[in-house]
Each structure stands twice: as structure tokens, then as C-alpha cells.
Amino acid sequence: MARVSLRDVHLTFTLRKRGSTSIKDSVLRALSGRPAPKAPTVEAIRGLDLEMRDGDRLGIIGHNGAGKSSLLRLLAGVYRPTSGKRIVEGRISSLFELHLGFDEDANGWENIRYRGYLLKETPASLDNKIAEIAEFTELGDALDRPIRYYSAGMLVRLAFAISTAIEPEVLLVDEVLAAGDMAFMEKAQQRMNQLMDRASVMVLVSHSLKTVEQVCNRVLWMDHGQAKLIGEPSTVVESYRNFMKAKAMKAA
């Protein structure tokens, strides 16, 4: 049984450039008694509530920087909420940025293993699936090459094939599908439909309103880290369209 629940979740990032704090600075600051300069913060998610059960397919839409991807990572457990409660029950499988969860220097086969083991598969259970995964990717001999030589489309095929082969209970997808070609998109769509039939929870972040309307049975419109609207796909997508149109008119 899969379940996703968020209660009044906030996520605040403290911006710090990697490498901006040196030991020297810290020691000098401690000696001089000067307080550390306050780092700027960004509130990526501000008080979000969400409740999903088996069979729910949630689409998330909104402009760039609305907090969609942050929300997805929060659901995956990569980011812990700054405050509020996150409950996710069920095996999570996520498709984020293309290179995540892969070792660039390893070949396709090895990366199938890495991903599989990350999804808590065993060597034996993976042996059973590996041929099917390889076939689904249609990558053929390319699987023997290090994935640093893969195109974006090839990476999508690989990532999607693995992440969906293990029958996740909670599937989190961040826009990556767009990098696949038409033939693969259709195939992926079918696989998605199958997965959904098996009553798992899916969350899809997408800028393609058409995809969201087709695939999802609920849509969340995010705006500045908050839920602007949540409900029936047609209704939410419609209001989002109108909002964007109005905004474009204003700008013009």
C-alpha cells in the first residue's frame, strides 16, 4: 500500500556558495567575535498540505522556480522539510535530472546494477529483470559503452527502463521524459499506464499541460512555493492557462 502525506510542510534553503566558507574565515570570525554574515535564504515550499493514496496520479504545474522540483525531491526524501511532516509509505523510485543516480564512467549494464541496487534489488532479483530492462531500452550494443557517451534521449531510456522495471509503489518523475523521442514516448506512456493500473502513486512534474491532462487524475498548481490550486486536471489546467494568458496580455 502506498501513501504520501504532507502536513504544513516548509522547505527553506540557506544559500551558500560551495567553497565560500574557509577555515581561515571561520577562525578569524570566532576570534574577533564578529557574528557570521547572515546567509540569504529562499523559501522553496511554504506550508504545503498533500494527501495521496493508491491510484493517485498527481501532476504538478507552475512557472519556473515555483518549487515543483523541490517538492519532488522533498517527497523522495532527498530534502528533509525545514518544518512540518512528511510521510511516504512504499518503495520510492524517482526519475530526476538525467545524470542523477548514475556513474558516468560505468557502462549501461553496470548502471542498471547501480540503480537496481539503489532500489534495494538483490543480485538474484535483478538477474531476472536485467534482460527485460535492456530490451526495453532498445539500446543494444550501446549498453557496453560508458554512459558519459550517451545522448540525453539514451539516458532517459535507460533511467526510465530501470526505474519502472522494479514496480515502484511511489514513482516520482521530473520532466525528464521530454528528452525521449516520439517512439519511446509512446512506449513510456504505455508503461506508465500499466504502472498506474497496478495502483501505485505517481507524481509528475511537467511543463507539458497536455501530458499532465492525459496522465494525471489530479493536478497541483504551484506558485511561489504554495499550492495555488489543486483538483481535477481539466479545471486546474484551464485556470492555469487563463492565468498565463492574462499575464501575457498584461506584459504586452
Partner: peptide, 9 residues
Amino acid sequence: EPFIRQQPL
């Protein structure tokens, strides 16, 4: 990093 950003480990 590619693994740490993918899921909590």
C-alpha cells in the same frame, strides 16, 4: 553527489 542527490542514503 549523483547518488546523494537521487535519494536519501
